[in-house]
Measured scan of single mutants.
Amino acid sequence: MQRVNMIMAESPGLITICLLGYLLSAECTVFLDHENANKILNRPKRYNSGKLEEFVQGNLERECMEEKCSFEEAREVFENTERTTEFWKQYVDGDQCESNPCLNGGSCKDDINSYECWCPFGFEGKNCELDVTCNIKNGRCEQFCKNSADNKVVCSCTEGYRLAENQKSCEPAVPFPCGRVSVSQTSKLTRAETVFPDVDYVNSTEAETILDNITQSTQSFNDFTRVVGGEDAKPGQFPWQVVLNGKVDAFCGGSIVNEKWIVTAAHCVETGVKITVVAGEHNIEETEHTEQKRNVIRIIPHHNYNAAINKYNHDIALLELDEPLVLNSYVTPICIADKEYTNIFLKFGSGYVSGWGRVFHKGRSALVLQYLRVPLVDRATCLRSTKFTIYNNMFCAGFHEGGRDSCQGDSGGPHVTEVEGTSFLTGIISWGEECAMKGKYGIYTKVSRYVNWIKEKTKLT
């Protein structure tokens, strides 16, 4: 034993070699072989497995989906700052455009905790909710729209109204504003409101030439003092309507412009014939205590009207009353817009006519005020429907199939267009061939041609 100890002390290297040989010859039971080890760690190889990531292109799944990435790591994937920024906006807080917040056709661009709407022409605001041009839906104005110097929408209202708090709607500024039905039992019968379409306001006024200088022999019209197929109006439903009495009662109609003036057809009036105007009328054979009678003290036909040349060209006249009318729910003026808007309103496509005229061709006159909704007829169809001249200051309205029309005794009465609950004068009943005849239409004086003249002559002093 002493000898062994001496050998170990003198030859430590020998001992180490012996131990190493023993270990190498022993069977290893701690580690699995290569094949079995792979069965336990069965993990798919990654895209760049075996390579240094710093030297390969980034992978979106590896960089940002398996674990949260930084902007720089995302930049490695896209290799483009702009594309990385677009991805980053949604990656950080989701897609803010998912709810489609942009209105009126706006395009949404996502941002971090926010979004941006790219608005089409005519709109602005956070969600493109603000109209900035009158060309689109009248700028959301209830009545009139004008573009300011910086191309912003400025709404306005006709006389007797003021802008509401929203700067879009119009509200009454006087007790009985024009064009409004205020009798409670008839307010439910107000005709369907007309909503502004998209309009090209630059070209809204037709490029028409008034044929002022045409000389033409007097034409022989049949029954051209021209509501057939209409309905009984309720008291106060058309408070701007008046009836004219002269040699015979209810020979023509008219509309209240203001307390002192009536507008009617020029062919209705004769110099030297006494005319009485009755406002607030409903049943011409009954006294309903809503009527107001006034005498006409002055007749002003349009300066281009000449019955000797043509009885229905420039067929418009103004009547001055001896005493002002007292405005109330049964006696209310009709609204008159400017030339541009009167023309736009007419193009809405349908209007209402009213009167006490004959209820059928050569038949009896109506006792109760009649009204009828009539569609506008395109000019080409209008011209083809008659052998008589249709001037540019006239328009056609009615039904091709016949059966409904204005008729004798309705002449001078109103053709009105309702705009968001307020009625505007767009025409004056003038003439036609018979009444409600198939293929024939009622012919009306186009008020847009005469609004400046009306307003100039009827100013209240």
Rank of each mutant, 00 (worst) to 15 (best):
E27N: 03
G125N: 05
V77L: 10
E281S: 04
D212T: 11
L32T: 06
R140N: 14
Q219I: 07
C268I: 00
E10I: 13
N135T: 13
L325C: 00
L211D: 07
Y330C: 03
T81F: 10
C97S: 03
C128H: 03
A250P: 09
F71M: 15
S354E: 03
E285I: 09
G402I: 14
K68P: 05
L369D: 07
L20T: 01
I316D: 00
I262S: 00
V326H: 14
A265P: 04
L327T: 06
A192M: 08
G94P: 05
H282V: 10
F31G: 15
N203K: 11
T386N: 13
E67I: 04
G122Q: 09
S329G: 11
Y115Q: 15
T16C: 07
R384T: 15
L130P: 15
N452V: 07
A26W: 00
K137T: 08
D322Y: 02
E285H: 06
F360K: 12
E27A: 05
G351R: 01
S385M: 05
K339M: 14
N222E: 03
F345L: 08
D111R: 10
L346T: 13
C117Q: 02
S49C: 09
K51L: 05
S49K: 14
T218S: 12
S11V: 11
H415W: 03
C134T: 02
Q185M: 05
E420K: 14
L327P: 03
N48C: 15
F251R: 10
D315L: 01
Q185P: 13
D131V: 05
E401D: 09
Q143T: 02
L211T: 11
L425K: 00
N310S: 08
E208P: 10
K126H: 04
K311Y: 06
H282I: 05
Q241S: 03
V296C: 02
T133S: 08
K188N: 08
C69T: 08
N258C: 00
E288N: 07
L60N: 15
G409N: 15
Y115F: 11
E208I: 11
T276G: 05
V263C: 02
L318A: 02
N203R: 09
N166C: 02
K89M: 08
T85A: 08
G357S: 14
S255G: 06
L189A: 09
N38R: 08
V257I: 06
G230N: 09
D200I: 08
L23V: 07
F55E: 14
A233P: 09
N393E: 12
A207K: 09
M65S: 05
Y441L: 13
S156T: 11
E288H: 09
G13K: 13
G272H: 08
Y47G: 11
I300G: 00
V77Q: 15
L41G: 15
L425A: 00
E193A: 07
C69H: 04
P301T: 07
G160E: 02
D33G: 13
T426V: 00
V30M: 12
G421P: 02
Q241M: 12
D378E: 11
Y450S: 02
I300Y: 07
L41A: 15
F388T: 14
P177Q: 01
V451K: 03
D93N: 15
D198T: 11
C382L: 04
I429E: 11
T264W: 01
L346H: 09
G246N: 12
G349C: 03
E420R: 15
Q167M: 08
V242S: 00
R298P: 00
G94F: 03
N295S: 12
G125M: 02
C170F: 00
T225M: 11
A207T: 09
C252P: 01
G254C: 00
A164G: 09
L346D: 02
G442P: 08
S11Y: 03
E286Y: 05
A26Y: 04
N313A: 09
E420A: 04
A337S: 03
R180T: 04
G50C: 13
G409L: 06
S25G: 04
A317P: 00
S25C: 07
V278E: 03
H361G: 06
N283K: 04
T209M: 10
C108L: 03
C157A: 01
Y441Q: 03
N295W: 04
